[in-house]
Design a protein around this nucleic acid. Structure first.
Length: 281
DNA sequence: ATCCAGGCATGCA
DNA sequence: TGCATGCCTGGA
């Protein structure tokens, strides 16, 4: 059992961070004051200590500080980000409403699978699918009086057939997952050097299109310049920023990337959370 | 009971 | 390059 304290100059909101749809397998305790879930090779618990600090504990102490610093993106200059994307009254209002929402940098393998599963689905169902895969093929960890399951590695899933994935009710996504595990591209194990090239390579993977590629690059590889556009984002952007109602989603994504630049990912996640939970369409 | 999702691949203009 | 259609499953 090990513990790490993380301090932020800006306020941190755990509920927004874990509830905004970027991550699926963390469970909420004490009315959102604490969350427990997997971080690659271990289970962590995160608790809000003060508005500006988190306490993280884990069943595994090795490299814990390093791991959680990366996961919680403590090096992001939040104030600078707020200034950069606070470009108009609409965004100023969103920044205020979602203040304390932070991006996370997730384990790539679980994150890639998560967003392939996300197509034509919803958060409870995605969570259910991921938990099923973890419970069957992942390592069980007893932590804080309960059992949790790590997400299996690629090796753990190498023998699983497409048919077996279908039996888990992944539907047509089963063939995408199966294909990815059988033929796992080496570039996924490295960090993106060229942002656009990396995005192109992601989209070449069977079952990964623009939206899923953008989510993966943003949430798993920490490339904050991406602006994933789904139906929620589309509705919001058409309502507040873009008069042309026939514009394609990739064009809206391009618009967001230009407008918000290197902090587009934060803008996207804040808009997304706001659109789902606060906007009246 | 149909219908259609937080998307993608495919086929056709 | 752009648009229509089918895809698994399951909730409305």
């Amino acid at each position: 059992m090990a513990t790490v304290e993380l301090n932020f100059p800006e306020p941190y909101n755990l509920d927004f961070t874990f509830g905004c749809g970027q991550i699926f397998r963390f469970q909420s305790f004490d009315e959102g004051k604490s969350f427990i879930g997997p971080l690659s090779d271990r289970i962590i618990q995160v608790r809000q200590q003060t508005p500006h600090s988190l306490i993280i504990s884990s069943n595994k102490s090795k490299n814990l500080h390093e791991k959680v610093e990366k996961f919680f993106r403590v090096k992001d200059d939040y104030k600078k980000m707020e200034q950069a994307i606070s470009t108009d009254p609409v965004m100023k209002n969103i920044l205020q409403t979602t203040r304390g929402l932070h991006l996370l940098q997730q384990d790539p393998f679980e994150c890639i699978i998560s967003f392939i599963l996300s197509q034509c689905s919803n958060i409870p169902r995605i969570t259910h699918h991921l938990n099923q895969i973890s419970e069957i093929y992942g390592e069980k960890i007893d932590f804080e009086k309960r059992s949790y399951f790590l997400f299996p590695s690629r090796d753990d899933l190498l023998q699983v057939s497409e048919e077996t994935f279908r039996e888990l009710k992944l539907g047509y996504r089963a063939k995408y997952i199966y294909n990815l595990i059988q033929d796992y591209p080496a570039f996924l194990n490295s960090n993106p050097q060229n942002s656009l090239e990396f995005n192109k390579k992601l989209k070449k993977i069977y079952g990964i299109g623009q939206k899923v590629a953008d989510c993966i690059q943003l949430f798993a590889y920490g490339d904050l310049s991406w602006f994933p556009v789904d139906v929620w984002m589309r509705k919001f952007m058409l309502k507040h920023y873009i008069p042309e109602q026939r514009i394609s989603n990739p064009k809206i994504a391009e618009f967001g990337r230009k407008k918000f630049g290197s902090w587009a990912g934060y803008a996207q996640e804040m808009i997304f959370h706001y659109a789902r939970c606060y906007d009246t369409f």
